[in-house]
Design a protein around this nucleic acid. Structure first.
Lengths: 344, 344
DNA sequence: GCGGGGTGCTCAACCGGTTCAGCGGGACGC
DNA sequence: GCGTCCCGCTGAACCGGTTGAGCACCCCGC
C-alpha cells in the first residue's frame, strides 16, 4: 500500500518528473509514444494525485464550499437544504469534486470562514445562500476575489455570478390563482424579514394584491413548524381572517394545516393553503398541499454548474404552482353569507 | 492581501523557519521570550497556516468525511440526514474542522471514495452510515487503516469504533407500550431489508411480540413517503388488519397517517401509529404522531466526538418513546366502554 | 580546566507535485 | 554546409510548511 508518486512513475518509465507531470495533466510538449508509456505505468501503479501537493503548487483543490449561516438545530428541520445539497452533489459528485460543508451561527462568522478557507486555499470557490439585505459576505468575496455563486436574485449579488428564482413572478402567479378562485383576503406567513428574498416576496405580494384588488397581509415568521402554527392561529383567530394563506416554506405550511384543523377550520372549505418549496411533505398531508413547486435539487445542480463556470440558462428559475387539494373557491364567493365553522 | 508565510514571520522576528514552526505548533525547544515574540509577529501579520503545505508534510488535514450511499434525490426527502449532519457540524465546527460531503449511488462507490480520499490524504477520517449486512466499506477501512466511526451497533462495526442506537431495546419498548394499550396485532413498515439496523429491528420485533403474546408483521419499504403510504394502504386494506402500525422513519409515518385518513380510517380510534426518528414533522401532523424519539443531532455530535478520539459514553444511545396523539387503546379491547389510555 | 549534559536555536532535507528556462538534436530553408 | 526553428525533454526552483541532526553556549561538578 506504499504511496505511488510521480517520481516513481518517472523512474519506471525512464523520463523526468516534469515530463510525467505534463502527461498527467494533459499538457502539450510530450510525444505520443512517451505519453502512452507514462500513462500505462501510471495506470499499472494505480497512481492518484496528492491533492495537498497540487494545492501547494497553486493548482486547484477540487473542493467547493458551502457555509450555512443558521443555527445547527434549525438546519435539521429544513428539508430544503438537504435537497439543495443533494442537487449540488449530483453535479459535483460526478466530476469527483468534493463539497466542504460548515454550519455557522451567523453571516459574520460565515464571512470569517470564507476568509479562512480562501487564505488556506482549502476550496476553489463557494456557494452563498440565505442572502441578507446588505450582506457582508458579498462585499468580502469581491474584496478577496474568491470565486462564488450567489443563490438569489442578481440584484443581491453585487456583480458576483448568481442563480436565482423569480420570486416576484411566482408570488404574482399565486395571487392570480387565488384571486381567480374568488379570494379577496390573502395572508402570507413569510420567512425572516432580514432575508433578501423575503423582502422581494413582500413587495411582490403587495404589488400583485393591488393589481387584483385583493387585500393582502404578510406576517414574518422563522421557517419553523412552531412559527408557522403560531402565525396561522393568530391569523385565523384574529379579526377579518383571510380566506387563503400562503407560506414561504413547506414546513410552516404543514404546521399551519395542522393548526387550522386543530381549530376546527376546514381546509380547503374554509381556508385555502399554499405551500412553498414543494417537498415530499406536501404530498404527505391530508388534504395534500398545493405548493409553489421549485425543483430544489435541479436548482442546486444549476448552481453547481454555474460555480464550475458554465453559463446557466436561465439565470432566474421560474417556479410553477402544483395544484393539489388544499385550495378551493373562496367561501365568501361560494357561500356569501355564512362561513361555516364548527368552532371559533 | 499578500499571503503571510512562516518564512516572513521568521524574517521579521529574527529567527529561523524551524523555530517559528515549533512555536506555532506549541512544541518545546523554544524559549518563552522568543515564543512570545514570534506569536506577537504572527498575530500582527494575521497569519493562517496553509493546509496544503501542512498536509504535504504529513500532518492532519483537519477535515473529516461523510459519504452518503443513497440516490441524491432520496437524500433530499430525508430529514434525518440534515439533522445528523447538523449534529456532526456542531462539534466539528467549533473546532474549526471541516466536513467533506459526498453523495454516491451505492456502497461500492462509497468504498472507492474512501480509498481515493485516503490515498489523496484529503480527510483525516470518515463517518460510515447506513451500514449494510456484510458491508464492504468496513472491511476496506480496516484494510487501509483509515480512521473511521461506524454509526450503528458495535456488532456491525467489525472492530472499528462505533456509536449506535439500541434499536432492539427501543423496539421492545414500543411493543410493550402498544401491548399495554391492548393491541394484539402490530405491523411495522420498515426500511430496506439490506440495512443492518433494519435486520436488528426485525428480529427484536419478532422477539418482543412473542414475549407479549402479540401478533407482529414486518413489511419492508424504502423510507419514502410513497412507500409508507402504499404499505399502509396494503396493511389496512388487507386481511386481518393491524390495530397499530410502527414506522421505521417519520416520513413514512406521516404518509401513512395521510393514507389511513384518506381511507376513512381514524387515527388513533381505529388504528394507532408510531413514528421513528422524531423530527419536526411528527408535531406538525394532525393528530400529532407518537414517535420513538432519538435526538439525531445529539447523536451526530456524539459520533463526531468519537471520531475525534473521545471516549463517548454510552456507546449505545437509548431512544425514548415520545407519546402524542396517534396512539390509543386498541379498538378491540376498548370496545366495551372505557378507553383507559393511561394503562400501565 | 575540562568533560558532560541541557537548552535554544539553525540548517537543510523533505513532502509531491507544477512550472519554466534551457538544451540537444533533427528537420528545414537557403 | 550552416543557421534557424521547433519539438521533446531535462533539471532545478518553488509552493509553505515539518522535522531531525547538529551546533553554540551556558551551567554544573569535580
Amino acid at each position: 500500500m506504499a504511496r505511488v508518486t510521480i517520481t516513481e512513475i518517472a523512474r519506471r518509465s525512464g523520463v523526468s518528473k516534469g515530463a510525467v507531470s505534463y502527461v498527467l495533466n494533459d499538457r502539450p510538449g510530450v510525444s505520443d509514444a512517451t505519453r502512452a508509456r507514462v500513462l500505462q505505468v501510471a495506470r499499472e501503479l494505480n497512481w492518484v494525485p496528492n491533492r495537498a501537493a497540487r494545492a501547494l503548487s497553486g493548482a486547484k483543490t477540487d473542493t467547493y464550499g458551502l457555509v450555512l449561516p443558521r443555527k445547527a438545530e434549525d438546519i435539521g428541520h429544513e428539508p430544503y437544504y438537504m435537497e439543495f445539497i443533494a442537487g449540488l452533489e449530483s453535479v459535483l459528485g460526478e466530476r469527483s469534486l468534493a463539497l466542504m460543508l460548515q454550519v455557522v451561527p451567523d453571516v459574520a462568522t460565515a464571512a470569517a470562514t470564507y476568509r479562512k478557507w480562501w487564505s488556506e486555499r482549502r476550496v476553489d470557490g463557494v456557494v452563498v445562500v440565505d442572502v441578507r439585505v446588505d450582506d457582508p459576505r458579498v462585499a468580502l468575496l469581491q474584496e478577496i476575489g474568491m470565486p462564488a455563486v450567489v443563490v438569489g436574485h442578481p440584484s443581491l449579488a453585487g456583480g458576483l455570478p448568481s442563480v436565482g428564482t423569480d420570486d416576484a413572478a411566482a408570488v404574482a402567479d399565486v395571487v392570480a390563482h387565488l384571486a381567480g378562485l374568488g379570494h379577496r383576503a390573502i395572508a402570507r406567513v413569510a420567512g425572516p424579514a432580514e432575508l433578501s428574498h423575503t423582502r422581494i416576496r413582500d413587495e411582490a405580494l403587495a404589488a400583485a394584491a393591488a393589481g387584483h384588488g385583493v387585500r393582502a397581509r404578510t406576517v414574518h415568521s422563522d421557517f419553523s413548524a412552531d412559527g408557522g402554527a403560531t402565525a396561522t392561529r393568530a391569523l385565523l383567530g384574529g379579526p377579518r381572517p383571510p380566506t387563503a394563506i400562503v407560506y414561504d416554506n413547506d414546513l410552516m405550511a404543514v404546521a399551519g394545516l395542522s393548526a387550522a384543523t386543530g381549530l376546527g377550520i376546514r381546509v380547503p372549505d374554509d381556508v385555502s393553503l399554499v405551500a412553498w418549496d414543494d417537498s415530499a411533505l406536501c404530498r404527505a398531508t391530508h388534504p395534500t398541499l398545493t405548493a409553489m413547486g421549485h425543483d430544489v435539487a435541479a436548482y442546486g445542480a444549476a448552481v453547481a454548474r454555474r460555480l464550475l463556470g458554465a453559463e446557466v440558462v436561465p439565470r432566474l428559475v421560474r417556479a410553477a404552482l402544483r395544484e393539489r387539494a388544499s385550495c378551493a373557491a373562496s367561501p365568501a364567493t361560494a357561500a356569501p353569507v355564512s362561513r361555516a365553522r364548527t368552532s371559533s
